[in-house]
């Protein structure tokens, strides 16, 4: 997975879910899930109020 979720930082608010163009993120109560639809576009990393999301660009093809 190229999107890293820092779970110790995540405030499980769902802001990232709302901006994901692929519908790859889902908030299940206090757990943020990312599925294979993720294209590592990084949009969610900007929406996060806490900086809990990170895209590992080196992992991109």
């Amino acid at each position: 997975m190229m999107l890293t979720i820092h779970r110790e930082i995540c405030g499980y608010c769902g802001a990232c879910v709302s901006v994901c163009p692929e519908g790859a993120l889902e908030l299940i109560d206090a757990y943020l899930e990312v599925d294979e639809k993720c294209i590592s576009c990084g949009i969610c990393t900007k929406a996060c109020p806490l900086g809990a999301l990170e895209v590992d660009h080196e992992g991109r093809l």
């Binding site: 879910v17 901006v19 519908g23 889902e26 908030l27």
Partner: peptide, 18 residues
């Protein structure tokens, strides 16, 4: 809510422009 998925699953584009 803001993290809505249901409408998207039903074919409505709910993505908020960043």
């Amino acid at each position: 809510g803001v993290e809505s998925k249901f409408a998207r699953w039903c074919g409505i584009d709910t993505t908020i422009p960043i």
